[in-house]
Design a binder for these strands. Structure first.
Lengths: 147, 147
DNA sequence: TTAATATAGGACTAAAATTGTCGGGTTTAG
DNA sequence: CTAAACCCGACAATTTTAGTCCTATATTAA
């Protein structure tokens, strides 16, 4: 309930991991899988999604991998979640692609109130960037271990 | 993904509905079920939960029902979600009652970053009250229909 | 005092979403 | 030409959510 999906967690872990490396130093799916105990095929798909949206860039072939494609303050949590799980909509009736109409029909009194929550939440996650998260990472003793 | 559960939606609808009535005017589960097309046994259980947490008060017997038990600015969205679905934790590792330990073990670099998101989100939903939502309701043409 | 309509609540089933797996590609360094 | 990497769709397993069923208690009114 109101929780990030594992895929989003994996995406954040991966991006933070890459943000600790300098320049175009590569990170492979296997490396992330090993280091964080994430099923390799799953992390692979997450990375592919991130690559498609150009948050990271891929290098194919042996010795290939990924590196950050954008500065860390240009990537917001909102964008990451959207890329992985689709746009964050707090209630279904606010979704854009909504095929089946709202069952409440004209009786719905909540659409507008939910709209406020949604708009405020959008701002919240739009302005929360990888940089904000990375800062906290720097205070954490373990991070020094990441090469 | 990052969406309120139906139960939480139902709780918000119910509370906003009751907030439109004055004093101790009662609202029954049947009334809410009819008006918003919600399965009656489901809305009942949501109301029971809200009553147990004393957001609303119940009156039993024929002509019974519920009425708001607290001023609208004393009820936050955070409290409602907690009452219905348990505490909002953005990632599983931040849960209090966590029996199985984090699979990342000492490799986890994300717990602290997620902690920031969590803390900021807590503030966000703690300070968002029924009053904030009801205000938007007032601007909505349909609300006049609720007696 | 009985019938009707409320809330109270546990146990169960159905449906949906998430998570993880499988099997097949293509690319490239050595 | 082979190993190690990315690419990608389809599937299976698991978990969570949503909804149902059934029984009990309370209260009003005929």
């Amino acid at each position: 309930m109101l929780r990030f999906s594992k895929k989003v967690e994996y995406a954040l872990i991966s991006l933070l991991h890459m943000s600790q490396k300098k320049g175009e130093q590569l990170t492979s799916a296997a490396e992330l899988s090993r280091q964080y105990h994430i099923p390799q095929e799953l992390i692979s798909k997450v990375l592919q999604r991130l690559a498609k949206e150009e948050f990271i860039r891929s290098v194919q072939g042996v010795k290939g991998g990924y590196f950050l494609g954008q500065p860390i303050d240009a990537i917001s949590v909102s964008q990451i979640v959207s890329a992985i799980d689709g746009p964050m909509k707090i209630v279904s009736c606010l979704e854009h692609r909504q095929t089946d109409r709202c069952i409440q029909k004209n009786h719905c009194t909540i659409k507008n109130p939910m709209g406020i929550i949604q708009r405020r939440l959008d701002i919240f996650f739009d302005t929360l960037t990888l940089r904000d998260l990375q800062q906290e990472l720097s205070n954490h003793p373990k991070t020094a271990e990441i090469s």
